[in-house]
Design a protein around this nucleic acid. Sequence first.
DNA 1: AAATATAAGATACGGCCGTATCTAATTTGA
DNA 2: TCAAATTAGATACGGCCGTATCTTATATTT
Lengths: 195, 195
Amino acid sequence: MTEKKTRRRGQALVDAILTATWDQLQQKGYQNLTIEGVAKAAETTKTVLYRRWPDKAHLVIAALGKFGNLTPYTVPDTGTLRGDFLNLFGQLAAFLERLKGETLRGLLADRLQNLEVGKLLNHANQGNELKEIVQPMLDHAAARGEIAKAEWPDRVVTLPGILLINEVLSQQDLSEAAQIEMIDDILLPVFHADN
Amino acid sequence: MTEKKTRRRGQALVDAILTATWDQLQQKGYQNLTIEGVAKAAETTKTVLYRRWPDKAHLVIAALGKFGNLTPYTVPDTGTLRGDFLNLFGQLAAFLERLKGETLRGLLADRLQNLEVGKLLNHANQGNELKEIVQPMLDHAAARGEIAKAEWPDRVVTLPGILLINEVLSQQDLSEAAQIEMIDDILLPVFHADN
DNA sequence: AAATATAAGATACGGCCGTATCTAATTTGA
DNA sequence: TCAAATTAGATACGGCCGTATCTTATATTT
């Protein structure tokens, strides 16, 4: 007879659920993970889950926050804009390696229903705007005289993020070759443009 | 007594279903359109629909093909690369105006599960690769001596498409100001880069 | 015209979603 | 310490998915 009287509450319960979520994510992948399945695995019911997370995407994001080993990005300052971009992309590549491509793809597809592309990457990183990293890089480059100005339209400042998302969705990973090509063929020409 | 003996078959049936699909799409939008709902509206059953289209996305794409008034893009040749891009983006903007943003967003999100971003736009246009339009533009520009070379990495040639998709997903539409900014701030600097 | 092949339509299934409602365990605070 | 407030957990609902199975109307073939 399996006795089970005590009810978990609050953080203990949340922990159990997120553990189960992480578990299921490894076992079944994002697409095949279901709220009901997680509830069952955590020995609770979906009612409890829906009280805390509105949908699968949020639940998985929460689990990622707990187990994904995510580290906040830091603003690179290598002395050249190219070096900064390389460093930034390196940080992002490291982050992405922690996620299976399928998870990211599923997450993005789900979030796409509610969010704009530009916001997607941020949400993978606890709301840290990628822009807040790129802008200081541009400030430094402008201060060094490497580029003509530090102020660029939003569409341009967010370009690194756009390229990145596209790359990750197209390929599974973010190869070094891809990083270099994006930087040398696209980003640097854009920021070095003489206008 | 509503008599209904005759069974529709083949094209007649397909037409009825796609008409119902188009109808439902207007009434409920992509997200709230359901296969069962379309089946009911077309006075048939979902079994019949699943025999022809594997999922909602394909069904809606078929309806778009029939009622979306899509026209194939033509290769611009205005005499300048900038003019060509403007023309191309104009064509795309016209196309996108036929789709509600919500439809495109939903479609993209659904297709994202199975396709890479670069392929997405093509599928909206009967498989015409955007690349097949951009490349001739680059050939012309190179022949004119306007740009240094006609051969660019895939990542660069597909950049217009990436920018476009991102724009459409972020905003509802593709404003003229956005088009100009993408062209002048990003695309032209990239293709004019001296390397 | 009759036999055969094809495909429409009806029905039912298990699975999951997201919500609502109820109960009972646990915490709280008076 | 005991009543009140909170919240976990159970259950049930309607809706939709995607598949399978069966029937029966229509088309094809001979």
